[in-house]
Design a binder for these strands. Structure first.
Length: 680
DNA sequence: CTATATCTGGATCGTCGCAT
DNA sequence: ATGCGACGATCCAGATATAG
């Protein structure tokens, strides 16, 4: 696993001597001058006797010096942390002030402004709660205050009471109307099923990215709770609110209501669905060929079969009791401490890879105060930005990102290509990725652990897309390597955070961002006319040495071979290539020039096929893919064909979205599949 | 066509506030 | 302190959509 990199890269930068401090192996310090007797006796020597040896004495002095420096640096770090805390507090105060000011300002101008221009607070929102997320999300997120604006008709369903008025709820469950009929446009018209599906897909995406990866709080009660709306509102309120904000930002129709009830209902449904799916998977695992807790043999059945079995085995009278018992047993199964896979094999690996600095990190850890969220020392994690070190990272640990090797080889062969000054945004972006401390108190839960990297790569206006606009913005190979090393470090830190906090993560957001960074840089390199290694993927046509437009839509299809090899490589390794060695991959790419247009298109089609129809709709919608006039209900294949015919679909941003979607789907699939696997 | 995923509605339980 | 009703949360069953 990856932590070996700590040793590999850490040792190269460590100021500690490579050997000699541990003295665990006498042979390690054997020299030709020592005879067998001396070799044996060394184990019984006292420290002061060993210090008589000038070599040991020198090592000892180095060790002492290093320890002192470490202590000094820890003190410095503490001071800096305090300063950061103060600045963070100040920032929070200013944000709150700003939010309050905007709130007051908009309240005054309420009757004349359009709803989208208003900033509203739902009843449960306090200024402080809202302010934090407010700066990061678009400022026009929240559409609805408690009162329906006069410009909207009641049929917009501003409040849940309006649903009752329009007969959308049943008497027995007045608080949960069917959302498909409740989400309406500003004229109060219901939306189409596909639009509603797109909204649900967005919600699922946000939940999977921002809520599902969150670890379980230390509170024992949290382990007992099912992870539905109540759970997240109790333990991750801010994250939940952030997701509501994001959902409303991405699906503005959901903002046409009071107190965000529409977005909240959509999220609640989504969470319930996820919980149900997990339970179904677990139930299947437990039920396959085994006896149920009632001693009844339960076949791996469909839901209809389940009903039959239940009714046959239990009378109506006992049904209620059985249900509750069953629910409890499910809860117990869920709450039972799972076998901690992280603690099985990887622990020794991870500990061993901490290398020489591990013994020192104990010193600095002792200085770290405990808080509600345990602090994790990550300063020892280091990624060397030399080409050889970076390449070994990508061959050993991130081999699926095959463009990384192409890019690194290309840069290594032309290290001075277009060397210049990085853009200010790039400098700031890089600094944020490099320097952010996971112990920073102002970070929210969805920026930590398995989601570590989220804030660095998406916070504010600095993102891969906005910063990595052209190679001039990067400034040169050296800075590109710096960025790659920083992105790699986020991957390592994410894993270490999860490890330290006992979080079982099936995937890491940082990996996605690393892939994004590589994909972007590789695009920029080729667009800038950067020389590509012989036998590797070809550069984009750079006629007359001029920098071409990265993706002019009218020529996109002409450069399908060169361009798509980039986006597709980043999208997903194909089954044929993902398991091959790099050499084979390179060969494949290099020989694919002639007819690769069709081949890659087919490859892209394969990728799209792995997505659900909902996902395809989302992609079409968000990327403004042009669809032909419908003659009948569109099938999934219709959508794929339409996407493939649109030049926009060949652009990097589309591929990026598709790749992210596939990744999310894999995560979700992975959960159910792993459940099935564990059964067999 | 079958299996699976997702969603809604009904049933039930737990919690809270209020009246006694 | 106890009982009662309102409300919200959760679970389950069945319906529907979708993938294979």
């Amino acid at each position: 696993m990856f932590p070996n990199a700590f040793m590999a890269s850490g040792s190269s930068s460590s100021s500690f001597p490579a050997a000699g401090l541990y003295l665990t192996s006498p042979s390690a310090i054997r020299t030709p001058h020592f005879n067998r007797r001396q070799e044996t006796d060394i184990q019984h020597l006292q420290l002061n006797e060993m210090l008589g040896n000038p070599h040991v004495f020198r090592l000892w002095n180095q060790y002492q010096g290093a320890t002192e420096r470490l202590l000094q640096e820890s003190e410095e770090q503490k001071k800096l942390l305090q300063q950061i805390n103060m600045l963070a507090a100040e920032t929070h105060a200013l944000r709150a002030e700003l939010a309050e000011f905007r709130y007051c300002h908009n309240q005054q101008g309420l009757p004349t402004g359009t709803p989208r221009e208003r900033f509203s607070l739902s009843p449960s929102d306090s200024t402080s709660q809202t302010a934090a997320g407010f700066m990061d999300v678009k400022p026009v997120v929240n559409g609805g205050g408690a009162m329906r604006p006069e410009s909207y008709d009641r049929c917009v369903l501003w409040t849940i009471d309006d649903c009752q008025h329009y007969g959308l709820v049943t008497e027995k469950n007045a608080s949960r109307p069917p959302m498909e009929k409740c989400v309406r446009n500003s004229q109060g018209e219901t939306i189409s099923a596909s639009e509603f599906n797109a909204i649900k897909t967005t919600a699922r995406m946000l939940v999977n990215i921002h809520l599902v990866p969150l670890g379980t709080p230390a509170d024992p009660a949290a382990k007992m709770m099912t992870k539905t709306r109540k759970y997240y509102k109790k333990y991750f309120l801010q994250n939940f609110k952030d997701v509501l904000d994001k959902l409303e930002a991405q699906e503005p129709l959901l903002a046409l209501c009071a107190a965000r009830w529409k977005a909240e209902h959509i999220l609640a449904n989504c969470l319930t669905a996820i919980v149900d799916a997990e339970k179904a998977a677990k139930k299947k695992d437990a039920g396959g060929g085994l006896e149920s807790d009632d001693g009844v043999s339960v076949a791996p059945s469909t839901k209809r079969q389940r009903k039959k079995t239940a009714e046959e085995e239990f009378g109506a009278e006992s049904k209620k009791k059985r249900r509750r018992n069953h629910a409890d047993s499910v809860r117990l199964k869920e709450s039972a401490p799972p076998a901690p896979p992280l603690l099985d094999t990887p622990i020794s690996e991870q500990l061993s890879t901490l290398g020489p600095s591990q013994s020192q990190s104990v010193v600095s850890r002792s200085l770290v105060p405990t808080s509600a969220r345990s602090k994790v020392e990550v300063n020892f994690i280091y990624v060397d930005q030399s080409y050889s070190s970076l390449k070994s990272e990508f061959t050993e640990r991130f081999s699926s990102i095959k463009d990384a090797i192409h890019l690194l080889n290309a840069m290594e062969s032309s290290p001075d290509f277009k060397f210049g000054k990085s853009s200010d945004d790039f400098v700031a972006f890089l600094a944020r990725i490099k320097d952010l401390d996971p112990n920073e108190p102002s970070l929210s839960e969805d920026d930590l652990d398995a989601s570590w990297g989220h804030y660095q790569f998406t916070g504010g206006r600095l993102t891969c897309s906005t910063v990595l606009t052209n190679w001039d913005a990067v400034g040169g190979c050296e800075f590109a390597c710096d960025l790659i090393a920083a992105a790699l470090k986020t991957c390592k830190v994410a894993r270490h955070l999860c490890f330290e906090r006992n979080i079982e993560a099936t995937s890491y957001l940082s990996d996605v961002y690393l892939e994004n960074v590589i994909s972007k840089l590789w695009d920029l390199w080729k667009s800038a006319g950067g020389p590509v290694e012989k036998g590797k993927a070809k550069a984009v046509d750079t006629t007359d040495g001029q920098t071409p437009d990265p993706r002019p839509s009218d020529v996109a299809t002409q450069h399908v071979a060169g361009d798509k090899s980039v986006s597709l490589g980043a999208v997903e390794p194909t089954p044929s290539s993902s398991n091959n060695t790099l050499a084979v991959q390179n060969q494949d790419i290099s020989t694919g020039d002639g007819d690769s247009g069709q081949g890659l298109k087919a490859e892209f089609e394969q990728l799209l096929k792995t997505l659900l129809k909902d996902d395809l709709w989302t992609l079409v919608k968000t990327n403004s893919i042009t669809l032909p006039a419908p003659t009948k209900q569109r099938t999934k294949q219709d959508l794929i064909s339409a996407i493939l015919q649109d030049p926009k679909a060949l652009a990097g941003s589309f591929a990026e979205s598709a790749r992210n979607m596939v990744h999310e789907r894999k995560i979700r699939k992975g959960k159910t599949v792993s459940g099935k696997d564990s059964k067999s």
